[in-house]
Simulated scan of single mutants.
Amino acid sequence: MKFTSLLASSLLFLLAVFVACGPSNSNHYLNNRIELEAIALMMDHDLEVLEDEITKLGEFTTGLFDNKEEVLSKADKNKYVIKGVGANAGILVDTSLSSLYIPEIDQDKQAVDELIYLTNPLDSLFKSIVEKHKVVSQVYFNSSTQLNRLFPPYDVYNMLEPDLDLTTFNFYYEADEKNNPSRGLVWVDEIYIDPVGRGWMISLLNPVYHYDNLKMVLAFDITVNDIFESYIEKSNKELIVVDATGTVVAGKSKAIEVLSLPPLKNYTYKQTITSDSFRMEDFNLFKSKNIEVRKTASNIILAGERESVLNSEGEKIIVISEKLERLNWYILELVL
């Protein structure tokens, strides 16, 4: 599944008809508002599809624990050959399997081996999810026993330090008992750098419990590139997406320029934000040197206004916004 689903395509078609038939002058603002609402609705719908998918994956995983003895009795214990801190993790990997990472920290080796055998059936599901949902760049779990299983496979040895504590990363602890007492799904909606080199992303987390014990946290990763290409780049509007802290997640070049953000690399914000040299504070509206940009950010994010006026070099620019239901993000359109 791509972000642009059947529902999304239908919404865009109806919107196009509405815009084409309506008087261009009197309906200009209304057209912009409706299109922005449609984009937000599309994003929320497709995020809901991913929530349903990871929920089903969690139910399957719980079933493995429920039928532990039977699953282990049939397990292929030679499926993975562990070398150092990894398995199926070098340059020559089996692309139908996940990579395993087992850090060099204190752990129950027997429990780790058992979890590897028990969760071997997840490989085919991980692979099918990545193939079905093109926006999902990787599927994985991190366990309380310090095991990471991730698809597509990657070079563990060169991408990760050998002694990482998996439970100290936000894609684990934000879904743990302390931070997620309801035990529901969690969106990590503040962008972060992926440790295995796939750029800036967000994650959808699903904690898996068995007999009241947190066994692991399942995760889908979605890159900023996917968000940019699926929504922002396809629109002819000057759009940007910002999170609740005011940091720009993705946006069009002209909109970025109007908001007095740093110059773009290679003329695309997508390439700027996926660069390792990206600094979040440089792309935070609240920290802009332009007081008008800071006022607009405050009006929309802090005051909850759906429309704000930005005075830019003597020109009044209308900024309209829609908040996403599932992510604490705002889609902004600069009506130039």
Rank of each mutant, 00 (worst) to 15 (best):
L334K: 01
E257W: 09
E281Q: 12
D282G: 02
I232K: 01
N179H: 08
L324C: 13
V258R: 08
H28K: 00
G251A: 13
S10A: 11
L150P: 00
E233L: 07
T95N: 07
K287H: 06
K295V: 10
V217F: 06
T223V: 11
D176R: 01
I317E: 03
R198A: 11
V242M: 10
D46K: 04
L30Y: 13
D108W: 03
A250Q: 07
L11Q: 04
V208Q: 00
I91M: 09
V135F: 12
D46R: 07
V242I: 13
S312M: 13
P263K: 10
L164W: 02
F286H: 01
E305F: 11
T4D: 04
I54D: 11
V309P: 10
H133G: 06
Y231N: 02
E305L: 15
P263S: 14
K68L: 10
K2V: 13
L327Q: 02
A16I: 15
A303I: 11
R326W: 09
E257L: 12
E51M: 15
I331L: 15
E190G: 12
V93R: 06
V293I: 12
E104H: 09
L6F: 10
L50M: 13
P195N: 00
D176K: 01
I82D: 04
P195S: 00
Y211I: 15
L36S: 08
Y231G: 12
R183M: 12
N78K: 12
D108F: 01
V217D: 01
W329L: 14
E53D: 14
F171R: 08
V71K: 09
L6G: 03
I232G: 03
V156M: 06
E307I: 15
A38Y: 11
T61P: 07
V186D: 01
E307Q: 13
D66M: 08
L57T: 05
P23Q: 08
E233Q: 06
L214T: 12
L30T: 15
A219V: 04
F228L: 08
D123F: 00
F286E: 01
L15D: 06
Q271P: 04
G184D: 06
K237V: 12
S235N: 04
S96G: 04
D66N: 05
D44V: 10
V136W: 00
I34F: 07
E233K: 02
G58N: 05
E37R: 04
E114L: 02
F13P: 01
F141Q: 07
I256V: 15
V71H: 11
I222N: 02
E104I: 09
N25D: 14
H28F: 14
S235H: 02
R183Q: 12
N148F: 06
T223S: 11
K68N: 08
Y192L: 09
D243A: 01
S9M: 11
M43G: 15
E315P: 03
Y330M: 05
D282W: 02
V293C: 09
P121L: 10
F65V: 05
K289W: 11
L310V: 08
K127G: 11
S203V: 13
L72K: 00
S124W: 03
L36W: 11
K234S: 07
N311A: 14
E322G: 02
M159L: 13
F65C: 12
K265A: 15
F141G: 06
